[in-house]
Amino acid sequence: MEIWILITIAAAFVQNIRSSLQKHLRGQMGTAGATFVRFGFGVPFAFIFLAIAITATGTELPVLKGAFFGWIIVASLAQIFGQVLLIMLFAMRNFAVGSAYIRVEPVLAAAFGFALLFETPTLPLIIAVAVSVVGVLLITMAHVEAGIWSLATAVTKREAQIGLASAAMFGLAAVSFRGASLSLGGPNFLVQGGVTLCVAITLQALIMALWIAIKDPADFKRIAVKWKTSTMVGFVGALASFGWYTAMTLEQAAAVKAVAQIEMLFAFATSYFVFKEQMNRREITGCLLIVCGVLVLALTR
């Protein structure tokens, strides 16, 4: 199994932890504050990870050029907008359909990769993305009475449109982060991923801090009260992002995002083994399809 697949699986596992912690924080501070801690508290850890990568590989920092900053700005803003749209979706009364559309991110990442980086998806990649997306859609729509087939007629719904917009932003962000990392031209994938992470997370932290200062300065006090949990969010968030950017330096963003769907399996494993919750037939089928998608990539790349 190629190293980028192992890195992606590890990043998905860590991101599942980060998502759980952020969900806990959202109930104790504003949405902007809970989003900020992902970036702001992750900055020092990002630079630590980069220092470790430089020391371990014995290389120097690459020269940052104009193209790199262009990719970073697009990627950072797209990721923030994607997160905002996702939060809007979760605030809705019924967001099952919208959540399903978010899971088409690998498809959109493939489209952006073709348009912006001129990367033509291979047949195995197309198959893997399609299989994994169908698997996640089955899981997402498992408890909706109308079933997954209602997706075809649900595009006009506001939650579906927000879900698609969020997926598009995350797909654009993934491809742009890959573009930024590749524009460095070396010295190796670990340092390239680390540099991309440090610049991006610093920019995002500054943007979110400015937003809070303008909209709800009191959020800073709530963040300070929960500094221990926030620090943990920053650590696991930066670690997951380091994994994503490193993997996307090695492989197309669409492939990385397809393997990243395995995060759903981690969530279900926790649900089944920890909380003793049962899975229905559609959820089990979805999990198996995600595994099949990952296996297709593992055996053909």
Rank of each mutant, 00 (worst) to 15 (best):
I214S: 03
V63H: 13
V43Q: 04
F118Q: 13
A110F: 09
Q204S: 15
V97S: 04
E277D: 09
A128Y: 03
A110E: 04
A46V: 03
W149L: 12
F68R: 02
I162R: 07
M208R: 02
V134E: 01
I72N: 01
I80P: 01
F39G: 02
A160H: 06
A254T: 06
G186C: 06
V134K: 06
N188V: 04
S132T: 10
Q261V: 07
A167W: 01
L295D: 03
Q79M: 12
L197S: 05
V144N: 08
I139S: 09
T270A: 11
L295T: 13
S19C: 04
V84K: 11
K65S: 10
L288F: 12
L64I: 15
F242H: 04
I262R: 03
A174Q: 07
W149G: 08
L25R: 08
G33H: 05
V107P: 02
F266G: 05
A152N: 08
L289D: 11
I3P: 00
A267E: 05
Q28E: 15
F118E: 12
T156K: 15
G147Y: 10
I207M: 15
A247H: 00
M279P: 02
G194I: 07
E283F: 07
T140L: 00
V291S: 03
V131Q: 01
T55A: 14
L182G: 00
R26Q: 12
I284H: 06
F36E: 08
A160M: 06
G33F: 04
T270Y: 14
M232K: 05
K226H: 15
V274C: 09
A11D: 03
K157I: 00
M248W: 07
T153L: 07
V129C: 09
V175S: 03
Y101R: 00
T202E: 01
A247Y: 01
L137K: 00
A174L: 06
L210I: 14
S166F: 09
M1E: 08
L64M: 12
L123H: 06
H143M: 04
F47C: 06
F266Q: 03
I102A: 02
R93F: 01
G70L: 08
A260I: 02
V63S: 13
M1H: 12
R178A: 12
E60W: 04
F69L: 15
I72M: 13
C292F: 14
E60Q: 13
E105V: 06
T246V: 07
L108A: 05
Q278E: 11
W71I: 06
L108K: 09
L137S: 12
A115T: 08
M141Y: 09
L21S: 06
A67S: 13
V191Y: 05
L206Q: 02
M88N: 13
P106H: 10
A10M: 13
N188L: 03
T153N: 11
S76H: 09
P106K: 07
